[in-house]
Simulated assay, not measured.
Amino acid sequence: MAKVTLQSIADRVGVSRMTVSNAFSRPDQLSAELRTRILAAADELGYVGPDPAARALARGRTGSVGLLLTDELSDAFQDAVATEFLTSVADALNTEGLAVTLLTSGTPDGPYVPARDVAMDGAIVYICDASSPDIEWLERRGLPLVSVDRDPSPTAPSVNVADRDGARAAAQHVVDLGHRSIGIINLDSGFDIEGLPTANRPARERLLGWREALDPAGLEPLVRTAKFRPHVAVEDIARELLDRPDRPTAVLCFSDAFAVATMRVAESLGLRIPEDLSVVGYDDSPLATAVRPQLTTVHQEVSSKGQEAVRTLLQRMRGQEPGEPERVLLPTTLVVRDSTAPPPDIAQL
């Protein structure tokens, strides 16, 4: 069976090939009656629409924006914060008539590297390690880029959260409650000579924020780190931190997921929350209100982060970015719920 083309439809209706093309791409150029006739003929002939590759070549754009992730997609979709971010990006692009293409890390020397080989008009780089070869490919292609939850590039706009402010408020909260023995469970992402995380900006900024509240109070926290996956690793770290005679009376966690895992371990050890142990999370994800007691946590505007990423990227794609690359820093807010209280020695007075 011969392939149905624009010319096939033009011959059926008795119009030019350009008129048929306008029916699909520039409907305002035709009368409603003529466009209806052309679409009906296309449907009758089984025409599936203009070839996407040819259309992209003619327009000089693909209509798609890449979203680079270094984690496996299965991991990203199990994380409530990452899922909310991905959804907000997709929704914001959809309102602009654009699609999102998820890019995962490829083998740098492999036959197919998504960051190098996938057609796109621009890209959002989410969290990725600065040394990622995928970022280098995107930059070498000269694509408009925006970074999210990463240290800003000198040449591209960025969207970040005031992670340090949020962590400082969380730590000050437990200090003000009277806690003097405090634990921290941060994300394991590699460290510099000063013990600061190197590969993950939120992990580094949150640790600095916690310290900014604890150091002036003369408090030295018990710091432990854990990987995002599997969560059993977080529980192992929490157990090592809590199953000891000198256990902390409060634990500050990198995320709500880490905090919920810590609460599960505490309860398995017979510790009551918040009577025996206060726990603070980060993100204010749906997990924070799904657990009992509900979790004290730091709220960040995840949806706004996705919307701002799209807005700044579109500005760059359209050549509308004014002056230096834009630096968006979204606020954070401490949300006090039921998982924090004064330590036992103060509560019993």
Rank of each mutant, 00 (worst) to 15 (best):
A2T: 08
T5F: 02
A10Q: 02
D11N: 14
V13K: 06
V13N: 01
S16G: 14
S16A: 01
R26G: 12
L30M: 03
A32D: 06
E33A: 14
R37S: 03
A40C: 03
A41L: 12
A53R: 10
A53V: 15
A56E: 00
G60S: 02
V65R: 00
D71L: 00
E72L: 07
A76N: 00
F77G: 02
D79C: 05
S88C: 00
S88K: 03
T95I: 08
E96Q: 10
E96S: 09
A99D: 06
P108W: 01
P111N: 08
V113D: 00
P114W: 03
G122T: 06
A123Y: 09
D129L: 08
P133I: 06
E139P: 01
E139A: 13
E139N: 14
R141D: 05
P144S: 08
V146W: 15
V148C: 06
D149H: 10
D149Y: 05
P154T: 11
T155M: 09
T155P: 08
A156F: 14
S158V: 10
V159E: 15
V159D: 09
N160T: 15
R164A: 15
G166T: 10
G166A: 07
A170F: 10
A171V: 14
V174W: 09
D176I: 04
G178K: 14
D188Q: 12
F191A: 01
E194Q: 06
A199R: 14
E205G: 08
L208P: 06
E220D: 14
E235Q: 13
L242R: 03
T249S: 10
C253H: 08
D256F: 07
D256N: 05
A257L: 15
A259K: 12
A261K: 13
T262D: 03
M263C: 12
M263I: 14
V265G: 12
A266G: 12
S268W: 04
R272G: 15
D276Y: 13
V280D: 08
D283M: 15
D284R: 10
S285C: 10
T289Q: 12
Q294F: 03
V298P: 05
E301K: 02
V302D: 05
G306V: 03
A309D: 06
V310F: 02
R311E: 00
T312M: 11
T312P: 03
L313C: 04
Q320H: 06
Q320S: 11
G323W: 08
E324Q: 00
E324L: 04
L334C: 11
V335Q: 09
V336C: 07
D338R: 13
P342K: 02
P343E: 05
